[in-house]
């Protein structure tokens, strides 16, 4: 009897969440099968899969997809590598360890809009600190970080990497501390050198944690919006327009609601596939153990 009562704790919530998302998904899907522009709402008409075909042949949309992929892969990889390096570096006893951890947390909890503004400020071609530091190092010609289409995407990447590498580091550090130390000690006793212990014992043990954090970062990067909106708004020459930004522009500049929803739906499907992968990695053992 009582066992059943626990159902009422979560079922209404889940049913409500489920119903809302079902209705929304159905409505959005319906929109993508129509041609609805806010400029002419009366002229809504059913067009079948046209919007999807349009996306497949839209050079701008495909470009945005490619940049989204490039951005996601690049920042995820770099953040993992840098984060891991930091962890290995910090994995020892030293005074102020707790303080260092607290400081590493600051970029993570900073408002992303403020992060975008900060880096826009740092990257200002004439008064920014980045170019000033470069000029001290002998780079005379100021770099136009956000105005040069060849490097603008990388400038946004730098901001993203700055904000999220500490996250990777802290998460990995937490995982590292939860690991048993026996295998490491055993390897050391067996005469393995410190780098061998790191590569052959430690890293394999951290693999699952790294995979999880990589997937989390990848999912967030696919959806990245704030930094792009604040730093470049997709320019110059479309060089920083990602799929999410393109969807936003389609909806709120071109008022092409149907096409915007098509982009959003495709993005959702992509991220959901990635999510299922995360889930598979994240929770397999624990749940089976309790069954």
């Amino acid at each position: 009897m009582n066992q059943d009562a626990t159902r009422y704790f979560y079922q209404p919530v889940l049913i409500f969440l489920g119903a809302v998302s079902l209705v929304l998904t159905a409505y959005v899907t319906w929109l993508t099968l129509n041609d609805l522009s806010l400029m002419k709402p009366q002229a809504q008409k059913f067009v079948g899969l046209d919007n999807y075909w349009r996306l497949l042949t839209d050079a701008r949309g495909l470009g945005a997809l490619w940049r989204t992929a490039l951005f996601t892969i690049a920042v995820t990889t770099i953040e993992i590598l840098l984060g891991l390096a930091i962890v290995l570096y910090l994995d020892r006893e030293f005074k102020g360890r707790r303080l260092v951890r607290a400081l590493l947390l600051v970029p993570i909890i900073m408002t992303p809009v403020v992060v975008g503004l900060t880096w826009r400020f740092m990257f200002d071609p004439s008064t920014g600190m980045v170019n000033y530091v470069l000029s001290l190092l002998g780079q005379d010609r100021p770099m136009d970080w956000l105005g040069n289409p060849a490097i603008a995407l990388f400038a946004v990447m730098i901001a993203d990497i700055w904000q999220w590498t500490p996250f990777v580091a802290l998460l990995t550090l937490a995982a590292l501390e939860a690991l048993p130390t026996d295998p490491l000690d055993a390897a050391r006793v067996d005469g393995a050198k410190e780098w061998q212990v790191t590569f052959y014992v430690l890293l394999p043990m951290l693999k699952r944690a790294l995979l999880i954090v990589a997937l989390i970062r990848a999912i967030d990067s696919v959806k990245a919006f704030d930094l792009f909106y604040i730093m470049t708004r997709g320019g110059p020459a479309l060089s920083t327009e990602t799929l999410n930004l393109y969807g936003y522009i389609a909806a709120f500049t071109n008022f092409d609601v149907s096409y915007a929803m098509t982009i959003a739906l495709v993005l959702t499907v992509v991220t959901n596939i990635a999510l299922l992968a995360v889930y598979g990695v994240m929770f397999p053992a624990r749940n089976e153990a309790r069954a």
């Binding site: 040069n148 289409p149 110059p236 020459a237 479309l238 522009i249 500049t253 071109n254 008022f255 092409d256």
Partner: peptide, 17 residues
């Protein structure tokens, strides 16, 4: 108009870059 300006803006930006 909005969409036309958006498209044209891309062209201007590309040429400038």
């Amino acid at each position: 108009a909005n969409e036309i300006i958006n498209n044209t803006g891309i062209a201007v930006s590309k040429a400038l870059a």
